[in-house]
Amino acid sequence: MFEFPEWLHDYQIEDTTFGDAYEDTLPPKRAWLKKTIAQVYGINSPDAPGKTWNVNTWRGGFETEVSTEPLEWAVLLLDAKSVSPVRILAALVPAFAAGVKSVLAVFCGEGEISRSVLAGFELAGQENVVKLPVDKVDLLLGEIIHCGIDGALLDLRGEPGYVKHGPGVRYWRVPEILSISVCREDDAPDMEVLAFAHPDVEFVEIDEDSIAESESDAVVVPAELVGDGLMNFSIVLSHGQEGCWAWNGFNSSFFKRECVALAVAE
């Protein structure tokens, strides 16, 4: 049974801090965080069993037998530049959906954790959050990476440094989002909500005719424009989804260990 080191309790974020952050985040904005959590959870098939065993028989006279089970632990690394609550939740929730039992969020170095990020953790049920000086981060990673139990590191820091690695440890570096193009229509999308969800990015206003020329990392458009014509963006949000997020190509399968066997078909 995997357990994080006991000395982390001295660096645990207090319950009152979570409560204050929750109260500081107005209900309409909390609703967007809840919507992100629910949608990302749904995308990642939380109703699937924790362990699976699939057998396929192929025409060549052989079988593949694939068994899967969740990793034991996951650690999210944050810093003072990790301020987008929805982008962080979109990385965290797939671990829950996969069935990872031990999940830890680690704020590294100087500064304070964003209140909206703390509110997102509170809503997601992620209260195992610590704030560590850099030397303690290295100590923690050294202990868990070499413990012999498979796990995952999610690097959500705005200024990532060297990360220790070892066998059985998966590493994912969050894609950088510097700008989001916004195609407006009447009063949509809600720019205040976008600013709350992504306080660290530049919003570039475009129109339908200039979408193809946009070089932003994501785009927000009216629902009727969603389709193949936006393939130059990896992430597209329609109006009504502007306060949510989902990472393209990153899902609960990242948090599952597989064993593949080749067998002779009977």
Rank of each mutant, 00 (worst) to 15 (best):
R184E: 11
H9N: 12
V182N: 01
L77F: 05
A21C: 03
K131M: 01
R115K: 12
Y41S: 14
G229K: 08
K136W: 00
L194Y: 00
C259P: 04
W32A: 12
L156H: 05
D217Q: 06
D79Q: 05
P70G: 08
W7F: 06
S216A: 13
E3I: 01
V236W: 03
S216P: 01
R157E: 03
E6V: 00
S45Y: 11
P46S: 10
V83A: 14
G99A: 12
A90T: 05
E224I: 00
V100T: 09
P85M: 04
I235E: 14
A97S: 13
C244T: 15
I235L: 11
V220T: 10
A21P: 00
P133W: 01
A38L: 09
V169M: 04
L230Q: 13
A124N: 08
E192D: 14
W7H: 08
L153M: 05
Q39P: 01
R257Q: 13
R170L: 13
G120N: 01
V137E: 02
V201W: 03
A152W: 00
T17C: 07
V264H: 15
L262K: 15
A31N: 13
C108D: 08
D200G: 11
V182A: 04
V93I: 14
S82C: 11
E143D: 03
K256Q: 13
Q39S: 05
D155F: 00
E192G: 11
L153E: 05
E6L: 00
V93N: 15
F121D: 12
K34D: 15
E6H: 06
S181V: 08
A265I: 11
E215K: 13
D190I: 09
V169N: 02
V86D: 15
V226W: 11
E202M: 09
F4N: 03
E122W: 01
P133M: 00
S210E: 10
V117T: 00
A261Q: 15
A261D: 15
L71I: 08
L8A: 08
E69H: 13
R30D: 06
